[in-house]
Computed example of a mutant assay.
Amino acid sequence: MVSNVTPIFKFNYKKLRFLRKKYGCSLRELADKIDYSTTTISKWEKGQSVPTNEIVAKLATIFDVHENFFWTSDLIPNINGTVFFRKGAVLPKKNKIEAESKIRLFALIDQKVSLDCNLKQYQLYDLVEKNKEFKALRRDDIAKKAVELRQVLNLGTGPIYNMTHVAERMGIRVMFSDLESENIDAITGWINEQPYIILNSRRLSSARIRFNLAHEIGHILLHSKYSQHIINNTQYHKEIEHEANQFAGLFLISDRSLALDMDKTNMKFLIELKKKWGLSLQALIYRGNEIDLISDQQALFLRQTIYRNSWRIHEPLDKVIPIEYPNFYEAAFKYLDIDVKRFITEISIETGLKISDIERILGIESKNNNSNNILRVLK
């Protein structure tokens, strides 16, 4: 769909660079697509020259946006707080930029929707750690934070029904997206004192997603005052990640609740515990071993059982326990009785983004639609 809005602003050269970086497209790749030199494209991205309307239309097609995306005055918000990556390996800079770009687009749409609908923003809870310099936290202190957050949110001591709903109640914005790299589980970024969490939709295991989300909330409460320099410091990074993991495990199930429930330690019983608490078998084994409910020998045997059954990636019940998709915007639109189709169309005209992309960001598209047409266009 091509917008019929007449451009009235200057070509926004920063948006060209943003889109190219977002999709991991090099200058050479883009040059080959549009048959222009890398030098010319570089000048466009620096605002030293302006592409013709014909080229702008071609760029819009390549990057799957409306032409007026490049002409509108809207600025793509910059991440101006700490960024946390939950990842399984060292990430290339390219993958980090792509993931951070999705956070920035998420914030662009959220800011428009939240302002127009007066939606709840993140609240700076008193239990947030105030330390700006690195300080290793004791396990007891982390457990206390987990208990306090449950109390603030009136969650009681039992299983948490929906972790995504918990984050949204806190005013944290949550989105599911294909982060492309299998090494990224989640990313959390701060823009204007508002935290945004993107969960990798490739990790479609409810238990894993729940833990990842609790892990990111742990970062928000325990480490959000740290500078990016501290977060990236290899000397501190491992401990920071360990603390977030501890918070996630303790928030999802306290030591006391685990001790009361784990009266058996065989695999069949642990699968039943997974069904009740929504925690992965591997996490249950770790937690049980951590507080001496499961011996080291039994923990080794259970992990070997997981390995022998090829359950390291796909555990039992992963397809049974439902995915807890974000529902914040959909519920808000319903409560405010908003004409969603018209509202999103207006945002599309204002931003130059496709309606389907806005729906995807707001979580009101089909839950099974995880296609990424832009990658096919670029490749």
Rank of each mutant, 00 (worst) to 15 (best):
D126W: 10
P92I: 06
I344Y: 04
D35R: 13
G363K: 04
V340T: 11
K112F: 04
S181P: 14
E168K: 00
I41P: 06
D178S: 10
N289Q: 15
A60I: 00
T157I: 11
I184A: 08
T6L: 06
V90L: 08
L362A: 12
I306G: 07
K130R: 09
F70K: 00
S356M: 08
A107K: 12
D35C: 00
E129S: 11
R287Q: 05
I160M: 10
K96F: 10
I347Y: 00
R169H: 06
I198E: 14
K94F: 12
H66Q: 10
I294W: 11
D141G: 05
F328M: 09
L250T: 07
S366T: 08
L91P: 01
Q297T: 14
L252Y: 03
S257V: 01
G156H: 06
N95Q: 11
K33H: 15
W190V: 13
F211K: 14
K10H: 03
S37Y: 06
R169N: 09
V83R: 02
V174I: 11
K43C: 02
T305R: 14
A136F: 14
R287N: 08
D263G: 13
T61M: 12
R308T: 01
Q246H: 05
N118T: 11
Q282G: 03
V166E: 05
I364L: 08
K14R: 05
E100R: 04
G171D: 15
N68P: 06
N12H: 10
K238H: 12
N200M: 10
L75M: 13
R360N: 07
G47P: 04
T82A: 09
F301L: 13
Y36T: 02
N200E: 13
R139W: 02
K145R: 12
V113S: 02
L108I: 07
Y122Q: 01
V83P: 00
V65P: 09
S3H: 05
S348A: 14
P77S: 03
K264R: 15
